[in-house]
């Protein structure tokens, strides 16, 4: 049912933050049901890409395009993108004092799904997902992320994903800070709680999570560009060899990769 553009198409995306160019021409195509991973050294722009996709206001898109099912994403406000089916699990989710997880998620669910579930109806839906993700019941009445441990925040992001069942879930280092059991639960959540044709973009530093969430494509981002694309084996190679060989190949700045496009 998707257009020939696939689910998400990013073309030559350049993004500035505070007048500094962070993304320097990103190309990426994600088809329905595909799992993509982006890896890369610290500070190369992975989160910037995630935030830019989600529509963060202070990020200035200076060129390029992003389309989702053929529609121009860059014209949409963050909430329109969410209602269109985009979801970002934040690397550092905000704490929102006084706003309970269940109430917030109910409002979000009703808005995204255009429903009007009552508190009681929603509670059942939420409870089911929480059980699956082994999140203690008491969390539904707690204030959003306030006082949550690092791992609890990550699990809470996945809970939100599970409730909103997006078409595209972007997980920005959701695996960092999770213990081994939690990692498996979260991965299971991503694999089983999303609809079959939902796509996933996993941003990570570790091959570990990719053992559970099997990527169809692995991309490497260096200095604001995707410089290398491969399959699952690329992640293994990175784990063993680090990024030096890529930095050598494409230069520290990634400037020699003009002829490389991330096709899939």
């Amino acid at each position: 049912m998707t257009t020939e553009n696939g689910l998400l198409t990013i073309k030559d995306l350049k993004v500035k933050i505070n007048d500094k160019e962070i993304l320097k021409g990103v190309n990426l195509k994600i088809g329905p049901g595909e799992v993509h991973a982006i890896m890369g050294p610290n500070g190369t722009g992975k989160s910037t890409l995630a935030y830019a996709l989600a529509g963060k206001a202070s990020y200035e898109v200076t060129s390029g395009s992003v389309t989702m099912e053929g529609e121009n994403v860059l014209d949409m406000s963050p909430d329109e993108r969410a209602r269109k089916g985009m979801f970002l699990a934040f690397q550092y989710p905000s704490e929102v004092p006084g706003v309970t997880v269940d109430n917030f998620l109910r409002v979000a669910y009703n808005t995204v799904k255009k429903k009007e579930l009552s508190i009681w109806e929603f509670r059942n839906l939420l409870k089911e997902k929480m059980e699956f993700l082994k999140i203690d019941e008491s969390f539904s009445g707690r204030y959003l992320n306030e006082g949550f441990s690092g791992g609890e925040k990550k699990r809470n992001e996945i809970l939100q994903m599970a409730v909103l069942t997006p078409k595209l879930a972007i997980l920005d280092e959701t695996d960092s800070g999770l213990d081994i059991d939690a990692l498996q639960i979260v991965a299971k959540g991503v694999n089983e709680l999303l609809p079959e044709d939902s796509s996933v973009l996993v941003i990570t530093h570790y091959q570990r999570i990719l053992r559970y969430i099997k990527p169809d494509f692995v991309h490497v981002m260096i200095n604001g560009k995707i410089v290398e694309t491969g399959g699952g084996e690329l992640a293994e190679k990175l784990e063993e060899q680090g990024y030096d060989w890529l930095k050598e190949k494409y230069g520290e700045s990634g400037k020699d990769n003009n002829n490389v496009t991330a096709n899939n």
């Binding site: 406000s77 963050p78 909430d79 209602r83 979801f87 929102v96 917030f104 409002v107 979000a108 995204v112």
Partner: peptide, 24 residues
């Protein structure tokens, strides 16, 4: 931004934060 990224309109995100502020 966090709340909007979950689909809430700007005004409903603001309202939720204000209610949260008053909640205690």
């Amino acid at each position: 931004f966090y709340l909007m990224s979950r689909g809430l309109t700007k005004s409903s995100a603001e309202k939720l934060i204000i209610y949260g502020f008053f909640r205690p």
